[in-house]
Amino acid sequence: MITVVVVDDHPVVQAGVRAWCALADPPIEVVAWGPDVSAAWLAPGATADVVVLDLQLDVTGPAYGDLKRLVDAGRQVIVYSMRADRDTVLTCLDIGACTYLTKAEGEDHLVAAIAAAAAGTPYTPPALSGAFGTDDRPHRPRLSPRETEVLLEWFHSESKEMVARRLHLTVHRVNSCLERVRVKYANVGREAPTKAALVARALQDGLLTTDDL
């Protein structure tokens, strides 16, 4: 069974994550919960497969330091935050988070994201897709026009079927396109074990070649 530790200081979020995980198929066990990151470092949270981390956005700024230390310890971290601005989203991905979910996306995507993180496969929810598709930082990875198109249409529609229909693709092609983009992002910026693993696996699976990177 997939195990999860939730770092969030809001009791309603805890209740929500528990409820979604209990209904998941296969079920996911929330083994620990705490208002700060120590829950993820101490038993039983220390051995959970996936960390769901609230950035604890307060006036002192996002807890990037906590995220870095978890990632460097090889943990699979899903950032689950109220904030949806592009800089925060892309910074978390650069640090090495598996994926970034806004609180509003939790109901539809948290369970799927946890399953993907536990399996070490990429997962790109719509908000993250929107952030990728409008990224204009100088060190962003090189994306093909089709990839950007898929990113933005997925962000707009929240439905891969609609994206496939609109762009005359198969849902499978849409998925592999999103995966390729995710791997390209794992290949730039700060080095992290989770990012390296994602790239290595994609190359192994033939999802993309070294030339694409």
Binding site: H10, V12, V13, A15, G16, A19, W20, L57, D58, V59, G61, M82, R83, K103, A104, G106, E107
Partner: peptide
């Protein structure tokens, strides 16, 4: 933006999760 958004966020999280039907 940082401070008030953070404080109000806790309130909007409460409403969001209830809206999602978790309780």
């Amino acid at each position: 933006r940082e401070y008030l958004a953070a404080l109000h966020d806790t309130a909007s999280v409460t409403l969001l999760m209830i809206g999602n039907g978790v309780l």
